[in-house]
Design a protein around this nucleic acid. Structure first.
Lengths: 227, 227
DNA sequence: AAAGCGCGCTAAGAACGCGTCAAGACAGGC
DNA sequence: GCCTGTCTTGACGCGTTCTTAGCGCGCTTT
């Protein structure tokens, strides 16, 4: 699980970020000033830090400088300062990215993903862990109840499409088009056969699928957590 | 010397960036469209790419997608598109940063420094020692159970790609592209033959590979420690 | 109630992918 | 010019995966 440390003196921003991050399956730690931020880095070893520059005790720049004396953890500065001087300073002190307030949450999340990807941290977007099933699309690995399961290329192709749109209905023609190409729009029996083997490997009870659900007449849906 | 590839359809921007970068002792290569950009990556192996999204032939997003099928080189998107959707898309496709035009040159330079610094930090994975096998990518030396083993240039090229992405699946087309070039995408038999000799030299039991694992239909994976 | 449809399931043959071997091509060094 | 090491190319066998067809069940339609 990826741990994000949010450092900001404004409780409202801490809360907003925490909610959005937790909704994306990040684990969130918060700090309201520089000292507790540095302490939190020591204790929690976060995978990425969102750092505001305007802190009550230490300047954000100072926090960054001290941090870099003992840790290489990725830092994304989130600040109201828009001047390029501030950006240059922060980046040269070891920050990995610089986002100005007000920010669009989607963009910040994408920048977190980009940064963690570069550093090699596992992304929650590509990793997922529900109901005893662990899937890693980036690594192409699947683990059911602790045991590694082998999926064939076609099975992976189907699983990827469904998982990337988790919760949403994917029509049969869409799946066929994505996996086999436009010419196979009508080969719904392909799906029946391969979904059967996918369920046999990934479902807890293949006879009563809880994860890879059929919507009769429409398509399939990856519905985790809708127990 | 750090090589920067500047991809933009506007000659004025190419020139401006080239002048500024050369003044900072970067080596600069330029490209005005997507195809020549991808070609330049193959030929010059740049350390960082500045990529405009509005190109005359291929969309910048397409360039990025294709690029990521064979190279992990850092990409900073430099675009006039300011929408957060564009940013999210580019970042999730594998871009490392996103700068909007017009940009302050100092900030762009700082972002280049930040990106290259981050990539340089994780490099020292050049030596490794697992399961009786010692590899030194810098020296191109391999030692199996105390005895020095000789690898051919092609074998080294393959091993390097796999080891640098240890644990991750590397697709056959990626390997072929990285080792033989874009024209050899289909020559999967090259891989079969060379992987055989790599295993004969590096695996403890070449008949049952534990390190250089095949993922049928997908690619290969260097998976140390997954005993 | 019967017919039609869509889906899950199974099993078989066909097709594919991989590892292996061996022979030929090629280049560099002596 | 020959020798050595390397890379390419083709062929074969084996195991896996995909395709295809057929059957049964449950739901919807007529």
């Amino acid at each position: 699980m990826t741990v994000v440390l949010v450092v900001d003196d404004d409780p409202a921003i801490r809360r907003t970020l925490a909610i959005n991050l937790r909704a994306r399956d990040y684990e969130v730690e918060t700090a309201g000033d520089g000292r507790s931020a540095l302490q939190a880095v020591d204790e929690r070893m976060p995978d990425v830090i969102l750092l505001d520059l305007g802190l009550p005790d230490l300047d954000g720049v100072t926090v960054l400088r001290r941090l870099r004396t003992f840790s290489q953890v990725p830092v994304i500065v989130v600040s109201a300062r828009t001047g390029s001087d501030d950006k240059v300073e922060a980046l040269d002190l070891g920050a990995d990215d610089f986002v100005t307030k007000p920010f669009v949450i989607e963009e910040l999340l994408a920048r977190i993903r980009a940064t963690t990807r570069r550093v090699g941290v596992e992304e929650p977007a590509l990793r997922l862990d529900v109901d005893g099933l662990a899937l890693d699309l980036g690594d192409s690995r699947a683990v059911r109840d602790g045991a590694e399961v082998h999926l064939t290329p076609t099975e992976w192709a189907i699983v990827e499409v469904l998982v990337k749109r988790r919760g949403k209905l994917v029509r049969q023609t869409e799946l066929l088009h994505a996996v086999w190409g436009p010419a196979y729009d009508r080969q719904t029996n392909y799906l029946r056969v391969h979904l059967a083997s996918i369920r046999r490997k990934l479902e807890r009870d293949p006879a009563h699928p809880a994860l890879f659900v059929t919507e009769p007449g429409m398509g399939y849906r990856f519905a985790p957590g809708v127990a």
